Computed example of a mutant assay.
Amino acid sequence: MIDHVHDLHSVRAATDRLLSAVAKLDNASLAEPSRLPGWTRGHILAHLARNADALVNVFEGRPMYASAEARDADIERDAGRTLEEQLTDVRDSADRWQAVTEVPADWSRTVELRNGVTDSAARVPFRRLVEVELHHVDLGIGYELADLPAEFTAREIEFLAERWSGRPEVPPVALVAADGGRWHTGSAEGTQVTVRGTSADILGWLAGRGDKGAALTVDGGTLPALPPL
């Protein structure tokens, strides 16, 4: 069951962790490559700030972004800023998003996100949590998939397993985590493979992070290729 109040608290805690970690960097570190191809750490921080403002737009009934081109241009514009500017922007934009969520509203309503994707308002805080947590890992500054809160990891695995469920290009897959978690994804037809490993490694494979599944073991075949997120 989705609990948006709980998720909003988790977003705040995750944002505080990220800001504390980034505050230990310097301007030169922000210009270095992140773990995302083509993006520096500054690009990631700019994206997080603009994503928070985009969610304000969503909750206030405006398009999430003016256009895909405008979104990319805003990130590129803000990527090269100083550490102080980046920290202030990420913090202030997060505060703006939190403020909008505190306005009395119908959390069961449907909202429109990017590229025509719709979801219930109550699920949006978890979507923001995904942005903050995974991009913290993407910064490559010591916060790894294994450091993510266990509750978050299990929920994100479930979310991504659902995303790839029913996709004909992905064979049936049983996901078995060393801590006891079990999920299914992929097509309903074909020969099932069983993928085993830590929850962190399973998440890394599903989300295209970390070693992208290299540490996983597969019974009944080879590790399937997943479509891009």
Rank of each mutant, 00 (worst) to 15 (best):
F59C: 09
D74I: 08
R12P: 02
V176E: 15
V58S: 14
L175D: 09
G61E: 07
T194H: 09
R81P: 00
E69K: 15
E84C: 00
A14Y: 01
G42I: 07
A99G: 08
I141R: 05
Q192M: 15
H4I: 12
G142Q: 05
E144Y: 07
L139V: 00
R35P: 00
Y65D: 12
A161R: 08
S10Q: 13
A28K: 10
L55P: 01
L139E: 00
R127S: 14
S199M: 07
A215R: 14
I75V: 15
N57L: 04
H43G: 04
F159C: 02
A28C: 01
S165H: 05
A215K: 15
S120W: 02
A161Y: 03
V117F: 11
G80H: 14
G186R: 01
V111T: 06
A105M: 12
D147H: 08
D211K: 12
G116I: 11
A200M: 08
A14Q: 13
D95A: 15
M64S: 11
Q98Y: 11
S20V: 01
F159W: 03
A174F: 00
T110I: 14
V56M: 08
S199F: 03
G208V: 03
F59P: 09
T88N: 13
H43S: 11
H136W: 01
P63K: 15
D53Y: 05
T191N: 03
G208N: 02
T15I: 03
D106K: 05
F152Y: 10
D89Q: 07
L206F: 06
A225E: 14
